[in-house]
Computed example of a mutant assay.
Amino acid sequence: MPSQPSIADFEQLAGSKDLVGYGSLVNRATLRTEIVAAWPARLKGWRRTWRPRPVMEHDSLAIPVPGTALTPSMLTAERAPESFIDGLLVIDFAANLPDIDAREFRYHRRDIALTDLEFISSGSASVSARAPAPDFNLHVYEARPEHPRAEGHSPILRSYLDAVMQGFLREFGAEGVHRFVAETDDFHTEIHEDRHAPLYPRAVTLSPAEIELFELSLGRRGRPSRS
């Protein structure tokens, strides 16, 4: 598991105005920019849910499969005052923000504060409570409610779910995977089994142990599966 952040790490970065921090998919292997740093963190006041992808013109993931047009569900963060979600805080160059916004065009970029995040150092103390506030902005991407929701068939792509769950395992361990399943709404959504021929463009490769753990965790929640 990657090392946890330290006060010195934040002090070193906090004075730069050329950086930006944002929440990501969690799996570092799916990042597409040359980032500065990334740390696992817990965000207060938000909850994740599976949501049918909104209807968008020229949708690159409105993927045709035999017998149906597959519009995959997307994983979203939505405000929930009493909730917490695990995630990955990515520190990137501010010059990359337009490209990130373009990639996340289905989402609003919302400001968050360092105090909204909890990092646990090796001494089991909250780093965010003692770290200096950075001179750069921190963000989370929230699904745009104004976009019409997809109707009909909108499963979770197994290849996408694999990437997400692998990220949680690497950042938070097996208990983090179980928390992700438990703390995410609408996990009853159908899963489209595309692991053998991934439709998700940033698909990852799993070990047998990862597959076993993910199935165990998903088994804690009943959900139909579709081949």
Rank of each mutant, 00 (worst) to 15 (best):
S24C: 02
V65R: 05
P64M: 00
V36Y: 05
A38T: 11
D86L: 15
F93N: 10
E57P: 12
G23L: 15
E78Q: 13
L31M: 07
R32D: 10
S60W: 06
R42C: 14
A37D: 14
T71R: 12
E78L: 07
T71I: 10
L31Y: 07
R32K: 12
A38N: 10
P52A: 12
I91A: 08
A29M: 06
M56T: 12
I85D: 09
L75D: 02
R79I: 09
L88Y: 05
L88C: 04
G23P: 00
E57N: 13
L89G: 09
R48E: 10
S24R: 01
A94Y: 01
T76L: 05
E78N: 10
S73R: 05
D18M: 10
E82A: 14
V55G: 01
T33W: 12
F93E: 11
G87I: 11
R48K: 12
G45E: 07
G23N: 08
L25D: 08
P52R: 09
T76A: 14
P52F: 11
P54T: 04
G45D: 07
P72S: 08
F84S: 13
R47Y: 02
G23Y: 10
H58V: 03
A38M: 09
I63C: 01
S24T: 09
T71E: 00
F93W: 11
P40F: 03
A29P: 04
A62I: 00
A95T: 07
E78C: 08
L88N: 01
R42N: 04
L88E: 06
S83I: 02
V55S: 07
T49C: 14
M74E: 09
G87Q: 13
V20Q: 00
R42P: 11
P64I: 00
W39M: 06
L19P: 10
S24D: 03
G45F: 04
P72F: 02
P54R: 00
L88F: 11
E34N: 14
P64Y: 00
V36Q: 08
W46I: 03
A62M: 05
I91G: 03
I85Y: 08
I35D: 05
G87C: 14
T76C: 15
S24Q: 03
R28D: 05
R53F: 03
G67V: 07
A95D: 11
T30N: 04
A95F: 09
L43R: 06
K44I: 07
I63L: 08
A80D: 14
R47M: 11
R42M: 12
